[in-house]
């Protein structure tokens, strides 16, 4: 299974980002191979549609599960179309969230906020 998480820094100790579309990096974690890497979020500095572009990055990584604190409407449309499961991240580190996910302590993200508008 491949898990994606928006994160602030490209290190294992990083906190999960508060934003999806404008996070600095995505952690891509392959649970089978126990391998992880960080993908720079090139959408972060976009003038508009950051959520959509970020979602495209996540989709292109063949992600199956996304753990994110929030998700805009547009990004959610893309993520859902790609049949990626979305769990609501807790405030905290990558490790804490991966553990919570494993222990089935994370809820599916139900609320989606209206689109982010940058013109």
């Amino acid at each position: 299974m491949i898990i994606a998480i928006p994160v602030e820094k490209d290190s294992k100790e990083s906190l999960v980002s508060e934003h999806f579309g404008r996070s600095n990096y995505f952690l891509i974690y392959n649970t089978d191979a126990k391998e992880y890497r960080f993908v720079k979020n090139s959408a972060a500095k976009s003038s508009g549609g950051a959520g959509i572009k970020a979602a495209q990055i996540v989709v292109d990584e063949n992600t199956e599960v996304l753990v994110s604190p929030q998700l805009g409407q547009n990004a959610a449309d893309v993520i859902k179309e790609a049949k990626i499961k979305i769990y609501k991240a807790q405030v905290g580190t990558i490790k804490e969230n991966l553990q919570a996910l494993e222990e089935e302590k994370l809820n599916l993200l139900s609320e989606v906020h209206e689109g982010y508008h940058g013109n």
Binding site: A43, G48, K53, A55, V59, N74, V78, E81, A82
Partner: peptide, 13 residues
């Protein structure tokens, strides 16, 4: 403008 995304099909925002 990031108005397009492709999953299994093209989505236009």
């Amino acid at each position: 403008f990031n108005a397009l995304a492709y999953t299994s099909k093209l989505i236009v925002f």
